[in-house]
Structures are given as C-alpha cells and as structure tokens.
Design a protein around this nucleic acid. Structure first.
Length: 590
RNA sequence: GUUCUCGUAGCUCAGUUGGAUAGAGCAUCAGCCUUCUAAGCUGAGGGUCCCUGGUUCGAGCCCAGGCGGGAACGCCA
C-alpha cells in the first residue's frame, strides 16, 4: 500500500467530501489544495468557483460560497480542520497531533518522507567538460543544477545514471595536436613532450586563436582531426594521453564541487554507432542530400521559419528554407559527422546499456534549439521507444555584475578552480577552519544559484558570494552548526517531541517542514530547484527565530527541554537531508 | 527576418498548474551580545509587477499587440 503524504491525504479526504455533495453528477475533476499565505491557514482550496460554474443551473446552490459550505459540512478528516471564507475558499489547518506525528517519523527515519512514485531510471547528462580545456565559471550552472536535480530524483528513490558527456572528439583536439606538431612537441611520428594540464592550458588558447587568423593552420588542424577520427597513429595515442590527463583534472574539479558522475563517456564513445544511426534514418527515407550534406527535416506541418539572411541589409536574398524549424545536418560535405549525430548515436548505446525511462540534459540555454532538433529526430526516426521522455533544461548564462557574460578584468574566462579558491579564502578570512572552509564556500556558490530560477541569468557577484549574510548557503550551514553545538552539549539529555505544541513559533517550524516536503514534487514536476532552496531557507529562518526566543540548555522543565531538543534534532535532520538533495554538504562547526 | 527567453522595491532575485493585503536578501535607518555560535534576532521606510487592450467572480501569472535586454537559427559544440 502506498503511503500518502499529508497533503495527499487531505486532498483525498476533500475529494471524498466533494463526491458526497455532487454524487448525482458526473465528477468534474479532482480538487487540489495549495499552500496558503493566510494567517492560521496551512492549505487552501480554490476549486469551488470552477465547480460551481460547471454545475447545472438548477442545482440548489446559489453561489460558490454556498457550495463550499456544503463541501465543508461533509468534510471529515483526522488530519485537518476545515473552514470556509468568502468569496469561496476552503481553508485547512493541520491538526497539531499530525504535525508532531510527522516530526516523530522524521526523527525516527533520519530523513524526510517524500511522496511515493513509481520507480524510474533517469539518465542525466550535465557538466559540459571539454578535453584539453579547463572547466570555467561558465560551467558552474550545469554542474550545480545537474547534480542537484539528479539527487532530487534519488531522494524520491529513482535510479539515476550520470554521464558528463565529454567534448572529446572535435576540432579542439585537432587544434591542440596541430600546435604540438608545429612547436616540435610531435616530431617524426613521436611525442617529445610530457602532456600536462599546464601545457594544455597554454596550447589550446593559442591554437584556438591561430585557427581564426591562419587558414593553413586551420587546415592542418582539420586534417589531423580527420585522421584522429579514423584512429590514425600517432595522433590517436596522443589523443588518448591528452584525454587521460584532462579527465583526471576534470574529475578533481567536479569533486571539489561535490559532484560525481557514473560515467565519463564522450563524443568519441558514440563514433561506433554513427553509421548505425544514419542507416536507421536513411532506411526510413527520412534523409536527403543538400549541398553535399546529409540532412534530415525536423519540421512539423504548419510551422514556418525562414532561413536567416546572411546580410540583413540585402532584402533580395532568397529565403532558402520555408520549414518550421531548421533542418539538421547529419553529415558534413566532407563526410564528417556533427554534434547532433553524435548525440543521437550516444542515445542509441545509452538506451542499449541502461534503458532509461527518461533523459535529462542540463546545458546552457543556447543549446535548446539543438536539443529540440535532436529529440525530434529521435522520435521521428524511431531511435528509441515512443514513451521515453526527453527533457532539456537550458540554464541561463553566468553573467557578471554588468549583465554581460562573465569575464575576468582582462577579458579572459575565470577557471572553476579559481572560483572555488576565492570563496574558500573568503571563508578562511572569516575564521573558519581550513577543512570546513571549502564546503562553506561552495555552499554559498550553490545556494545562490539554486535559489534562483534555472532559466534566468545567474549573476556572478563575488562580493555577494563572500559576504555570507542573509539568504545564503552559509546561513543554512550556520543554522545546522548552532544545532550541533546544542546537541553536543546535551548529549546526556532526553530528546522527545511532545504532543502539546505551545508556541506559534514551534508550530511554524513544523509547518515549514511540511512545506519543505511539498516542495519536492514541485521540483520534479517543473524541473526547477528554487522552491526547495526557498523552503529550506524558510525552515532555517523559522528555527533561528525559535533559537532567539528560547534558551534550550537553560530550560529547567526537563519535559519541555527534551521537547526542544527533539525540535532541534528534527530541524537538523530535515535541513541536512534537503541540503544533501541539492548537493550541498553541511559542516559540524563554523 | 523567424523562434526562444527575460522585464517585479535603489541592487540581486522569489512568486508552486490564475486566488485573499505582491514576498525575500542586500543596501539605508532604529534597536538586541556578562545568557546554548551576532555568518544571528527585532522593527521601520521602500512597488505604475515594462506599456496597451482582452479573457473572468478574480491576472505579476493566461491571450493579442507593442517597447526594451539577451540568445539561437547548415558544415563549431
């Protein structure tokens, strides 16, 4: 039997009452409750208006309010009180005994009880690392959001597989190797230098710059890329070495961000499946040739999108495409394949190896057209079963305080490592120990990101990250550290929640926990995390108010004191669980 | 040009399928540490939710049309 959350149980009771009242009519849909901002009201239901409207004019109710009152009279629940307010709101106030019961369960189980869901396997693709390049500030969001969302799925008991999908097969590798050839790093088919991260850090930016100004160099890099992709030596061995060095570093960076992957596959792993994919699509007659490229149309009927004009000033330039959505190039004029093809080929073997029910990609929002196209190809080409769900979460850009893409003062990118070092140093300056400083610093970065909407741009403001005041990650860790301090001093004392809740502050703590639990389904449903982040903050804030009002250790009434300690334990467990689900680690002391 | 996205307090942002008096943090001002960690707590001021229409009992949220910022749009990923 499925265990329902408090909210679900109240909804169930409510719908029994609704059916009681309108039993002789076809039912018009489930009534829903939402959390309420009204004083003394925990949940409210606003559905009486809509139901009244749908009802036959000959019914006995003269107004939505009238209807609400009838439902209210038929409402029976061991979980909540009900009352009606004008114009026609049904208001619910959870019984204290229920709040305490849930609190006791949390203390007993050491975690929040989330709603039961049918178990799924969900494949996560985030992180966005490229071989030969350092992770930088622009990677923050995909790492933070991807990891958090993965853990939220875990919190519900779903199986997850995380693959960072390395950019390890394109022109960048050719550029690095070309540069090594030119500076003598590779001679006579042999490698003469040690491949290190430091070296790659110098080589790639240089090669990338040369590509744009030296056509011969670009040609060389393209040739090498092609050879590499045909596994020609010594390029392939050198490539493998570069990959190894890079992955070690990338892993280390991810680790510092509290981020773990099950797989470090990349575009290269997709290569063996590319022909397979093209075969499947060609066989169904979905592809065509245009300008030497193998194309696929992903238009839906009735949609129209003109081809962009190369020169906006030229009004006579013909519009090449009248298709709904631009078609996709599967294979370049020279036979090479492109990222869309790799992505599809990757899905082919992911499906074979893991058969997930759902795929979630977290990348920068600029790739959203690309993913829409890929997902359409998957469906259109019957690459996987129809019921498998594909989701792309496009995060907003990381921007500086000027609103422009985040850059250092001299216009360069800032490495992820440097970002972590900076916040860590700031924490140490506040007097934290070296061990806990990094966690505290990373919590600031993560919470700042997660409490914003995924889609909007994320302002990278170092001053804000290092101030640690107000609604920040460190505030949450601080709350837990305060509780730890109390619990450590009270180690010999009883902790037992009482049925009687006296103060409204205590009750607020318990309802904050209910709201935290309710925030999880919202997160899953909308693929956003800020509702959870916000709920944790409110819980911490509510506790800190209680902390200010109550001296727990000096309480002389032992029954009261053990109740207070029970509340402490409850808040600690709840916050730690919720922070874990967002990928944020707590610290023992601060 | 087409499509996507954003526009809410001085600043950074929340606002859960439309719900009651639009909320936080920062900043500003005024208080609280001989008392469990002041990275904290209390209080005050601060709003044309970009504009104009529409839908309805009710719109920051939905629809239409504007204005403004950002982005994507065939051989990069």
């Amino acid at each position: 039997m499925k265990k329902l959350t408090l909210k679900q149980q109240i909804e169930k009771d409510l719908n029994v009452a609704v059916r009681c009242v309108i039993k002789h009519l076809p039912f018009l849909g489930e009534f829903k409750i939402t959390s309420s901002s009204q004083e003394g009201v925990d949940y409210q239901c606003n559905d009486c208006f809509a139901l009244f409207k749908k009802l036959d004019k000959n019914m006995s109710w003269v107004s939505p309010f009238d209807l609400a009152e009838s439902i209210s009279k038929n409402f029976k629940s061991e979980f909540t009180e009900i009352n009606v307010s004008k114009p026609a709101f049904l208001n619910f106030r959870i019984k204290n005994s229920q709040l305490v019961k849930i609190a006791k369960d949390i203390n007993k189980n050491g975690k929040l009880q989330l709603e039961n869901q049918e178990k799924q396997t969900v494949f996560f693709d985030y992180g966005g690392a490229n071989i030969g390049k350092e992770l930088h500030a622009g990677h923050l969001r995909t790492i933070i959001v991807g990891e958090a969302l993965k853990r939220v799925y875990n919190a519900f008991g779903h199986d997850t597989i995380a693959d960072t999908y390395l950019g390890d097969w394109g022109l960048p590798l050719g550029l690095i190797i070309a540069q090594l050839c030119e500076n003598g790093g590779i001679k006579d088919g042999k490698l003469w230098v040690d491949i290190t991260l430091e070296m790659l850090n110098d080589v790639y930016p240089l090669a990338s710059k040369r590509k744009n100004i030296e056509p011969e160099f670009k040609k060389l890099a393209e040739d090498i890329t092609a050879k590499l992709q045909n596994f020609v030596e010594p390029y392939y061995s050198i490539y493998k070495k570069i990959r190894e060095v890079s992955v070690t570093r990338i892993k280390k960076n991810y680790e510092r961000m509290g981020c773990t992957f099950d797989l470090y596959n990349g575009e290269s792993n997709a290569q063996p499946y590319v022909d397979n994919v093209l075969g499947i699509l060609e066989k169904q007659g979905l592809t065509y040739i245009d300008k030497d490229c193998l194309m696929i149309n992903v238009a839906k009927d009735g949609e129209h999108i003109p081809m962009p004009k190369k020169n906006p000033a030229d009004k006579n330039e013909p519009q090449l495409y009248k298709n709904p959505m631009p078609p996709v190039i599967l294979q370049k004029g020279n036979g090479g394949d492109l990222y869309a093809t790799s992505d599809i080929a990757t899905i082919l073997y992911r499906q074979r190896d893991f058969s997930p029910d759902k795929y979630i990609y977290v990348t920068d929002f600029r790739q959203s057209l690309h993913f829409t196209q890929v997902f359409r190809i998957i469906k259109k080409g019957n690459i996987v079963a129809k019921n498998i769900e594909f989701v792309h979460i496009g995060t907003g850009a990381v921007v500086g305080t000027d609103g422009k893409p985040f850059k250092t003062r001299d216009g360069g990118t800032i490495r992820l490592e440097e970002v972590v070092d900076m916040v860590k140093d700031a924490v140490i300056n506040r007097g934290a120990s070296a061990e806990s400083a990094e966690r505290i610093g990373v919590s600031a970065l993560k919470f700042a990101d997660l409490s914003n909407n995924v889609k909007t741009d994320f302002t990278f403001d170092m001053e804000k990250f290092t101030s640690f005041e107000g609604k920040t990650g460190p505030y949450l860790l601080y709350t837990v550290a305060r509780i730890n301090s109390i619990l450590n001093k009270a180690i010999d004392l009883n902790t037992c929640l009482e049925e009687e809740i006296v103060s409204s502050t205590e009750r607020n703590i318990l309802t904050s926990i209910i709201k935290l639990v309710d925030s999880y389904p919202i997160a899953l449903h909308t693929n956003t995390l800020n509702t959870i982040a916000d709920s944790i903050y409110i819980l911490a804030q509510t506790f800190n108010i209680f902390y200010g009002q109550t001296n727990i250790l000096r309480e002389t009434d032992t029954k009261k004191q053990s109740h207070y300690l029970g509340l402490c334990k409850l808040v600690k467990t709840s916050i730690e669980f919720a922070l874990w689900s967002l990928g944020i680690d707590t610290v023992e002391t601060m």
